[in-house]
Each structure stands twice: as C-alpha cells, then as structure tokens.
C-alpha cells in the first residue's frame, strides 16, 4: 500500500525522530512511502485562534501537496481532525470540496491506520517496562480512537500497559491555549503528572505530538525519571 507521510509542523522542527519512527513503523508494515516536500502547517492553530481565512489558505496548500495521495498517515490526531474539517471551507468550490472530502476520508492517524486499515496490532516491537498511555483529547474524543493504541501497545514484547487514573483527562496543552494561559496550562499539567507518578510507570506514551511535548516538559521540569515517548517511537522500537 502506498502511503503519503503527513509530517506535522512540530515534528518537522522539534520532534523529527517521531517522523522517523512513524516512517519506520509504516515501512515495516509493508507500506511504500511517499513524503511530499514542502510541508509546513495544516492550519489548525490558525483555525483554533479564530482565523479561518488564514487557515483556509493552508488548507488549500495542503490539498495541493497531497493531491496525488490515496492514503495519508500522520502521527497526530489534531492534524488529522483538521484535515477532516477542510471540506467546510470550500462550500463555494464544489470540485475542491469533493477532493477535500475524498482526501479526508483517506487521511488517518497512525494507530487507527495500523489497526483498522492494515488490520495489524503487532509491529514487531519490543520495549520491556511499565508503560502508561495518555488518551489525547484530539485522538480519543475528537476521533474516537481509544482501543487502537492500546491494542498496539499490548503487542509490544515485554511491555506492561498500565492505566492512568484519569486517562482521558486533558494534559492542558490545548495549542495556543498554553501560550495564552501558561499558568493554567501548567496547573492542568500538574494534575496529569501527578496521575502519571501515581502509577509509577517507566514511561508514559501518547499518540499526539503536542501532548507528548507538554507532558515530557512537565516531567523534565520536575526532574522525574519517567520518560515520555510517542507511540510511534515505541512501535518502531526506537527510543531516543
């Protein structure tokens, strides 16, 4: 199966290793990968800030970049959720709207792609240790992806999956929110970190890049020994 890699902006400059892990996992699963160059941003932050016109420009660009794609996969739920909104922007351009709908229907978050499209849960990975999974809001609630990451993690050799006390509670990042209201974001994060420490895992993971960044930063600031990795990194068996 040919898969076009959708690399979120945060991954491009701050977490390229997550992109590498994603590509590795997909390749091992038998996908032929295409990486459209020139990817910048899906427009989500602009949309959430109430700037849909600006977001629309980026939507149009994204649709052009991925025009040849039959299947698109991203290591992020929020970006996929944004792509699934694109069609709304183009009421006045029916042809583009059709393309947007078609592409959106074939754009997937990594875990949903592996489990639901490729029907695989075993990525051949091994990572011994206690791992807690955080249900990112943009993965669990926005896209309804709840059991897929857990199914994948349960097949990782040596991995003991533990549930967090409030697994679906928001980590507090919320995109622009954490820049506009950093103290509130930190307070929300504090409770998430406390939940993580309460189950004493070796590692906490999630399928959303921004949550990972936020949670890892909170753990590091506390001097915690608990590591934070993206789901893709565990499935690729890579740990940076």
């Amino acid at each position: 199966m040919r898969v076009h890699l959708f690399i979120p902006c945060l991954v491009e400059d701050f977490f390229p290793e997550i992109g590498e892990a994603t590509a590795t996992v997909l390749a091992r699963a038998g996908c032929a990968l295409t990486y459209p160059e020139g990817q910048t941003c899906c427009g989500q932050p602009l949309y959430k800030l109430g700037q849909p016109d600006a977001a629309k420009k980026l939507a149009r660009r994204w649709l052009e970049l991925f025009a040849d794609a039959t299947t698109v996969v991203a290591p992020s739920g929020s970006c996929v959720a944004m792509v699934r909104r694109y069609a709304r922007f183009f009421d006045a351009e029916p042809a583009l709207q059709r393309r947007a709908r078609a592409l959106a229907a074939n754009t997937y978050e990594l875990s949903e792609f592996l489990v639901n499209k490729l029907q695989i849960t075993d990525c051949g990975a091994a990572m011994p240790g206690r791992v807690a999974y955080h249900d990112s809001c943009q993965i669990g609630r926005a896209l309804g992806i709840v059991h897929e990451p857990r199914a994948l993690l349960s097949q990782v050799r040596g991995l003991e999956l533990v549930e967090l006390p409030r697994p679906a509670a928001c980590c507090g990042f919320g995109g622009a929110f954490s820049l506009e209201f950093p103290e509130i974001a930190a307070a929300i994060l504090e409770d998430k970190i406390a939940d993580i420490e309460a189950v004493a895992p070796d590692l906490v993971t999630c399928a959303e890049v921004s949550c990972l960044m936020h949670i890892r930063a909170g753990l590091e600031k506390k001097g915690s020994r608990i590591r934070a990795l993206h789901l893709a990194q565990i499935l690729a068996g890579t740990a940076e």
Partner: peptide, 11 residues
Amino acid sequence: TRALPRLKTPF
C-alpha cells in the same frame, strides 16, 4: 512553567 523543546535537524 516548563522546559521548552529544542530545535533539531528537521525531518
């Protein structure tokens, strides 16, 4: 409030 991520060689 937290450690900022680092810029790396891009993907």
